[in-house]
Computed example of a mutant assay.
Amino acid sequence: MPIWVNEQFDPSGILYSCIACCDQAQAQDCHQTFKDNLSEDQKAAGWVARLRTVESWDEVPANALKLD
């Protein structure tokens, strides 16, 4: 079962926030919220919202909010 990982990175590539869960619909909703909450200034500066899947909780960043 894949684990969906939502990540938001600042312009220097540092992970700013992360939420992980096993529910695809919930993950996609969260990803859309991450994207929508980035201001135009943040986007222009290089902030990025990313959604990816991993196969193990060991692959999820340690500081993530984990929902299951």
Rank of each mutant, 00 (worst) to 15 (best):
R50M: 08
M1N: 07
C18F: 15
Q24W: 02
S39G: 13
D41S: 09
I3C: 05
A44G: 10
V48P: 00
I14Q: 04
Q42E: 05
A49T: 03
F9Q: 00
D29I: 01
N37A: 01
Q28I: 04
L51P: 05
I19K: 02
C21N: 13
L51W: 05
I14M: 07
C18M: 10
V48H: 00
V5W: 09
D41P: 00
S39M: 08
K43N: 09
L15A: 06
V48Q: 08
D36W: 12
A25T: 11
L15N: 02
N6T: 07
G46K: 05
D41L: 05
F34Q: 04
C18T: 11
K35D: 11
V5S: 03
F9I: 00
F34D: 04
L38S: 10
Q28W: 01
C30G: 03
R50N: 08
D36H: 13
G13K: 08
D36Q: 15
A25C: 01
C21K: 04
W47Q: 01
R52D: 12
C22D: 15
R52F: 11
E40F: 15
H31S: 04
A25F: 03
D10S: 13
K43L: 13
I3K: 06
A44I: 00
N6I: 05
P2T: 12
I3S: 02
S17P: 03
E7R: 05
Q24D: 12
E7K: 04
C18L: 12
P11V: 11
P2C: 07
